[in-house]
Amino acid sequence: MTQEHFDRTIDRDQRIEPRDWMPDAYRTTMVRQIAQHAHSEIIGMQPEGEWITRAPSLRRKAILLAKVQDEAGHGLYLYSAAETLGADRTGLTEKLISGRQKYSSIFNYPTLSFADVGVIGWLVDGAAICNQVPLCRSSYGPYARAMIRICKEESFHQRQGYELLMALMRGTDAQREMVQDSVNRWWWPSLMMFGPPDADSTHTAQSMAWKIKRHTNDELRQRFVDMTVPQAEALGVTLPDPDLRWNADRGHHDFGEIDWSELKRVISGDGPCNAERIDVRRTAHEDGAWVREAAAAHAAKQTAAPSSKQIAERAERRP
């Protein structure tokens, strides 16, 4: 049950399961990938979560709250998958808030208007779906299963985003301007969500061999652009790229050069909201410590099964 079994399982396109032998590098890579994904879901609650209390209709408020709740759920499915590899959630959370593990840099951009809620659903969730659908076939079983659940829910997210944008585009001039402004700000960061170009991507080859990645960054990016262009036309918004045009020879859309220096800057912690996002997460974690301790303490007392007499005595001892 070692390397040979592992290789054969991968070759046959079967899943690696938690108690199987696996190379250390595979385990480390999976933990990093799943944790980064889990952190992204949890941090990703913040940019949209800021608009729940301000949502301009009760229906939109309910949709947004349900969506942000889903993201907490997705984070939990993923932490659950990471736990099967021996990484516990407390440890991963500490790595996140100390900056030793990353999350998707898209969430370091601010949300400036309610239209951002729609554009995040359409572009950011759309890009995430392109990235994530192939991960439903990841060679690591628990991750693949979590991704199936997540992808099913994400498709609702993208649809609600697009539906909101359609409503805004049918609305007032101010609403339409709000949408175009939002698209202008989120288009390029969405393209960067697929990661660096294949030529510069350090992990791609090994990840493809291990079948934890099924397509290259550039392939997925191209697929996203080709999917999104007709959606933008149907919506009546302009994607902010003068070089964007159909290339009949390639059968794909050509698009302009991405500003990779910006991506590097945001990844390395210099994005507009990096510090704020981590700070919110750290504060919630630290402020919640006494609550988690209390629940653990109460559970320990229950296990010791105190009689109701003991409970009464304890009540009396307390002033």
Binding site: S80, R292, H298
Partner: peptide, 10 residues
């Protein structure tokens, strides 16, 4: 899947 909880009811 799994989750974290302090007790069975939770």
């Amino acid at each position: 899947g799994s989750l974290r909880a302090a007790d069975d009811t939770m």
